[in-house]
Each structure stands twice: as structure tokens, then as C-alpha cells.
Nucleic acid binder design. Structure first.
Lengths: 223, 223
DNA sequence: CAGTGGTCTAGACCACAAG
DNA sequence: TTGTGGTCTAGACCACTGC
């Protein structure tokens, strides 16, 4: 059997794979479906199953929801946090609307300055409902990744997010806590994270330093 | 049977649906999988299948490749063009690399200032290979949509694009042609468009006015 | 424990592509 | 017509949830 598959090589037919691996056709098709989803294979009805070009393996872009820690690591940097703050407050009008809060419902805001190899990478402000936290407000964040922290402590598991992308200059708050130039541009990802059921879970404003992050999006013409 | 399904209502179990419709469980599951893909339903292992909220029907974001004309229209504005220019030139180093050009291969650059309801919306620079054009270089662009123009005149049909998202201040070129403030922020979509076979077709730098465009991305945790 | 969705087998027929 | 992938049936066992 050929080991080094080339682009557009044809795979053995499903019937053959069934014999080769001694599993049912359903199982074969499930496996191929996964590889097809990852754009490693493509199928043509009546012809066969083929190997895709490798460069189609587009590097993942913004359309994939990842923790900032993972993003920093995927750029080859070492993630860090140089400052963090946890505050209880009343929500802004925008939070009330997007998070579907009751007008007087308290929220908790986690603010952190993230670094990549020690350089300022992002200013992250994440807000969740007060009611997500049982008991006292935590004094510090014991995880690098906010996603892990929210999941393990409060059972918040974001499944998808809708992000507004906005070019901005630093806010007063940011200048207070970070040593940056007045004219330093940031890319603000203003997003709401939702759980599997579609309930808003996290309201976040992440300001990314474009000198560190090169954000990509894969854009498709047809769905 | 209940007709008006509410969010988070539970659906009959797969076994029940099998009896109800007299089909196999495979068929039931295929149907549910489609509805789940469209985020109309969600499943929880061991519990059941539930109805999602309607507003989850997320509006399309940057992950969908559309012409700027369509984007302007989808925001409810009337698209227009106040200035256009067509030039032949040698490619930049970045173009050579990303478009896989021969070093001395000529390119054609189309520059346009797009408006939405008359307000400055975007500064668009699209570059294609000289060899895409048979005969003389056109003097003007007879379409509002660049995608339509490229397709009808040169047979260029972009299928997907990879975009870098960069916050920027206006370039000298932009200030020369547009009446804008020095400090006006723009969102640059620096992108390469590819055809179905994965060959680079269009190299474009689109500078969007964030006062007009509210760019969104739908971000998914898992694929 | 019972009931749910997740995975799998074994077999059938249909729809499409190419000689 | 042959061989491919696409759809479907009927049945089984597993993994998770909640009582």
C-alpha cells in the first residue's frame, strides 16, 4: 500500500476500506466524514474519495474561538499576565441588552493585562453575571487561560461568540495601567460568548496589540 | 402534539420519532444533525434534544466573503464610487510572494473610493495579474461590484480569501484623495482571494471606515 | 435504575460518473 | 454496465443523565 499520499490521489473505495479495517461501512464513512470536515479529503459522488492539497490547511483564524492564552502560544510566544483585577459592579446599558440582564443585576468584571514573551499583548476585560459565582468574589485568578478558569470555577463553557471588530486608540483605563504610547493602535474584539444553549455567558472587550497579533479570517464565498 | 415550539423545549426522543415517522433511527439522526448544524436544535447526551433560540440565527459576518457593494447594501446604505483609478505596475515583494508571481510579471491595480449614502466608506485597492487581461488595459470600471466586474471581464471568480485584519491610520495616498481627518482610524482588510483550485487571483487592501462598517465575526469553539 | 443520545454492525437500494 | 459515494433499514451495545 502506498504510504505517501499526494494531493488528488484517490483513496481506496469505501467497500475496500471496510475489508481492510474489518469495520462496517458506517464506521468508515464516519471516519472519512471527519477527514473531509478538516478539508483533508474531498469526495466526488460516483468517482471516489481524494486527498486535498495541503496548503488548503488554512491556518486557523478569528472564525475559530480560542482562549487568548492559546492564541499567544500558537504565535510561538510565552503567555503571561502582568496585572489583574476583579471588581463587582452594575452593568452598562450595553451589557444589560446583550447579556439579557435584569436592570439591577450585579456583574463581575475581570481585567487583565496579557503579555507575550513579556511584551504587552492584550488588555482583556471579561464580565460575567454575579449569579454565576456562588459565595464570595474570588481575589485572584488561578489560571492562565480565562476559558479554563471560567469553566473549572463557575461551569461556564462558551461554545461560540459573536465579535465586533473595531480599530481603537487606548482608553484612559488602559493608559493608566500600561506603559504605552498615546498613538498605539489596538484591535478591539468586542464580543459576547454564548453557551451551547445560546445563553449569553461572557461579555468581553479584548484590546489586542497588532504588533504582536496578526489576526486572520478565512472567508468563504458560499456556505 | 404541540405545534409551537419554544426555546429550550425538549423534543420527543429519537426512539419516539422513529415510531412517529416510521423511519429508521439513522434517518431521524441525520435529520436532527442537519437542524443541529443550523443551530436550530442542540443535543445533550443522556438528556435529550432541545430547541434553540431563534435569534441564534447569527447575521453573517466577515467569515463570509462578499463584495463590498453587497456589504454596503446589507447595512442599508446606497453604495457609490467617487473616484477610481487603474494603473499598470510592477508587483511589490509581498505581492510576488502571496500571488506567486514571476519577479518581473506586471500587475494591474484598481483603486476606488467607495461611499455609503454619499459618506466615505472604504478605500479599496485591488491588484490582479496583467496576464488576466487580454489586450488593452480598461480605462474605467463599468460595474459597481468589483467581483462582478472581475468575473464578467476577466473570468476571475474568487472562491475564498484569507484576510489579515489590521487597525491603521490613513496612508498618504488616502489623504491625497479623500477629505479625512489625520486621526481617522481605518480597519484594513489585507487579503488574497483564491479561486476554486486554490490559485491566488486578487491581492487587495481594503481600508474600511469603522464609523460606517460594523464588522462581525462568528467564532466557533469546535469544528 | 430507566431513558436518553452516541457508536457500531450488516445489509439493501439509489444516484452519479465513466467507459 | 460497473463501481463509486449517498441514503436508508433494523438491530445492537455503550456512555451519560437523573431519579
Amino acid at each position: 500500500m502506498k504510504e505517501n499520499l499526494q494531493p488528488d490521489d484517490i483513496l481506496p473505495s469505501e467497500a475496500v476500506l471496510v475489508d481492510m479495517f474489518g469495520v462496517s461501512r458506517y464506521t468508515v464513512r464516519e471516519a472519512l466524514a471527519l477527514l473531509e470536515q478538516d478539508k483533508i479529503l474531498y469526495k466526488i459522488h460516483g468517482k471516489g474519495t481524494f486527498v486535498n492539497k495541503v496548503p488548503i490547511q488554512v491556518e486557523s483564524g478569528l472564525e475559530k474561538l480560542e482562549s487568548i492564552t492559546d492564541i499567544i502560544e500558537s504565535f510561538g510566544y510565552k503567555p503571561g499576565t502582568v496585572w489583574a483585577d476583579i471588581k463587582e459592579s452594575l452593568p452598562t446599558r450595553d451589557m444589560i441588552q446583550k447579556m439579557k440582564l435584569k436592570p439591577k443585576e450585579k456583574v463581575i468584571t475581570f481585567t487583565r493585562i496579557r503579555t507575550a514573551d513579556g511584551k504587552i499583548a492584550a488588555y482583556c476585560v471579561d464580565t460575567i453575571k454575579r449569579s454565576n459565582i456562588v459565595g464570595d468574589i474570588p481575589k485572584n485568578i488561578d489560571k492562565e487561560s480565562m476559558f479554563e478558569y471560567f469553566e473549572e470555577n463557575f461551569g461556564i463553557v462558551p461554545e461560540y461568540a459573536i465579535a465586533d471588530i473595531i480599530p481603537v486608540l487606548p482608553t484612559e483605563e488602559m493608559k493608566k495601567h500600561m506603559d504605552i504610547k498615546e498613538s498605539q493602535l489596538f484591535l478591539l474584539l468586542h464580543q459576547v460568548h454564548y453557551d451551547k444553549e445560546g445563553h449569553p455567558q461572557i461579555y468581553s472587550m479584548d484590546y489586542f496589540n497588532p504588533d504582536i497579533f496578526k489576526f486572520k479570517v478565512n472567508r468563504l464565498r458560499h456556505y
